[in-house]
Design a protein around this nucleic acid. Structure first.
Lengths: 136, 136
DNA sequence: TCCTAAGATAGACCGAGTCTAAGTCAAGAA
DNA sequence: TTCTTGACTTAGACTCGGTCTATCTTAGGA
């Protein structure tokens, strides 16, 4: 996490208390918070932080490649700090719980040239859906 | 398409002009319209059709398994009438164009038991992203 | 310590979708 | 054929997630 703050500073980020708190809230594994959840947790430490700042900071972290945006349902986007290790998501259809998972092989390789229609294909996102142990 | 209307009637659907028009608008291959686009096209044939009815009808078609809901961006959901043939989606990151594609193998098979964390995994959705020929 | 552009703030605004209360009509009954 | 009724449709208010704007604050270099 302090590495993250270091990396950001070295890219010319002005290090404000708001940005620090947002970065800290996003620390950890299997973290998939919505912007509102990030805001709520950040506000516990810094009560006057605004929603706009949380959205701005999350957007910056995404463009810097430090955080991934995940849209598994049609609802609020979720923010995943595990951006430096490639992975996919397993989502419970009932309660919405999300796990990071690591399928074998490269999903990109499964798309033959004839099925690419001239696109230069860059990424493949896989969302597995099912019932988690608690909901089954 | 008339098969679709027949199937729906045999499941007890009351066949109104609004539902018929929505079903007709969704006919065809590589159709991925938003609810608003469906509404606009339906309104060309039936000007007084309301947004709520379009949303209701799309929702019913989805629960009946006749239409798929696709959420490739964080924006409006799209509705895909190609529900009876398994396929995945290839999306242009620039213009948003969507193609149906057919990767080799079953993406579900790529997720080992050890990576399922006790979930009963039912489906795998793959979204390939890249630039289409026009945008490249 | 001072200056200033980058950043933060409150709150208005927007697009997508849902809900509600009242009106309409498809299709079975008589 | 007409009647009846509950399923369906409608307009418009409302919610939720997110963006924008005008104004104020502050990190960090001079």
């Amino acid at each position: 996490m302090s590495d993250l703050l270091e990396r950001l500073r070295s890219r010319g980020w002005r290090l404000t208390s708001q940005r620090r708190v947002v970065a800290e809230v996003l620390d950890g594994d299997h973290v998939h918070l919505t912007a509102d959840e990030v805001h709520a947790r950040a506000a516990e430490r810094l009560p006057e932080i605004s929603r706009a700042t949380v959205y701005n900071t999350l957007g910056e972290l995404v463009t810097l490649g430090e955080v991934l945006e995940v849209a598994t349902d049609g609802r609020a986007k979720r923010y995943d700090p595990n951006a430096h290790q490639p992975h996919q998501h397993l989502v419970c259809s009932a309660c919405g719980t999300i796990r990071d998972v690591h399928p074998t092989g490269d999903p990109l390789a499964a798309l033959p040239a004839a099925e690419r229609f001239g696109f230069s294909v860059a990424t493949a996102e896989v969302t597995y859906r099912g019932l988690c142990p608690d909901c089954a």
